[in-house]
């Protein structure tokens, strides 16, 4: 479903991604772990073209993201085309990024009709908060609305960029519950997170990144309990 091939990305002289390749099958849940600054978030942001790549390419369901192949060249797509492609790629931000001047329902209704919007709100268990503004909601509730909004464009894949990192500890559980439900319902998901317990329970595959490359990947059992690489072991010893 998602194919990332040989992606390089630099910010100025700092090379954040140094040749990353990743395949995610339809319905698969991939959790990306790694220390901060390892390039996890940047990888996620290149998948929906919030960041342009310097080299390599990304496809979703066979469609090249952000570019069009014509002749022997990759032509950058017009913004309008890229915006259209993004409807296939849900994105959930660390800081929710709900629109503060719109109610929970209106946030979702920006990209879906009101009846559907209510349905998506129901799916994250917040239909009674439809008319609340983001400021009136707890962090956990805000993130659940943000997830409903990401689902409202009916994406083929959903990307989560540290969805629980901005939350108070007691609010993490309700957001992870929603992610669990989504995973069970067969949604194709890539989740960047520091929640190792969640990764072990829900991930079909765990990818460990460090210093702009994928160091190792495998089932939760392989990566978390029998890591091959020294860097993975060092990271896990700090977070477990």
């Amino acid at each position: 479903m998602i194919e990332v091939l040989g992606v390089h990305k630099s910010f100025g002289s700092l090379e954040v991604l140094r040749g990353v390749s990743l395949n995610v099958a339809a319905g698969e849940v991939v959790v990306v772990l790694g220390p901060s600054g390892s390039g996890k978030s940047t990888l996620l942001r290149t998948i929906n073209h919030l960041e342009k790549v310097d080299r390599g390419f990304i496809t979703i369901d066979g469609a090249l993201i952000g570019y069009q192949r014509r002749g022997g060249k990759l032509h950058e797509l017009k913004e309008r085309e890229i915006l259209k492609q993004r409807k296939d790629i849900g994105f959930v931000f660390q800081n929710f990024n709900l629109f503060p001047h719109l109610t929970a329902l209106e946030n979702i209704a920006e990209v879906a009709d009101p009846v559907q919007a209510r349905h998506f709100l129901e799916r994250v268990g917040l239909v009674d908060k439809a008319d609340a503004y983001p400021r009136q909601l707890s962090g956990g509730q805000q993130q659940r609305v943000a997830i409903a909004r990401a689902l409202a464009t009916q994406p083929k894949v959903v990307l989560f960029d540290e969805p629980t990192s901005a939350l108070d500890p007691e609010l993490v559980g309700e957001v992870l519950d929603v992610l669990r439900d989504l995973a069970r319902s067969g949604t194709t998901m890539v989740v960047v997170t520091h929640e190792i317990g969640f990764a072990r329970e829900v991930a079909d595959r765990i990818v460990f990144m460090d210093d702009g490359v994928i160091v190792e990947e495998g089932t939760p059992d392989e990566v978390l309990d029998h890591p091959v690489h020294e860097r993975t072991r060092a990271f896990l010893s700090k977070v477990l």
């Binding site: 929906n48 919030l50 993004r86 990024n97 629109f99 990209v111 909004r149 990401a150």
Partner: peptide, 27 residues
């Protein structure tokens, strides 16, 4: 207006003019 607002609007695929009128300008 917070950069995250534009990123969220872009990630949702909201067309450019609508981003300005519905998301950026009211804030």
């Amino acid at each position: 207006v917070d950069r995250g607002q534009l990123e969220a609007a872009a990630a949702l695929g909201i067309p450019r003019f609508r981003q300005f009128r519905r998301i950026v300008l009211p804030q």
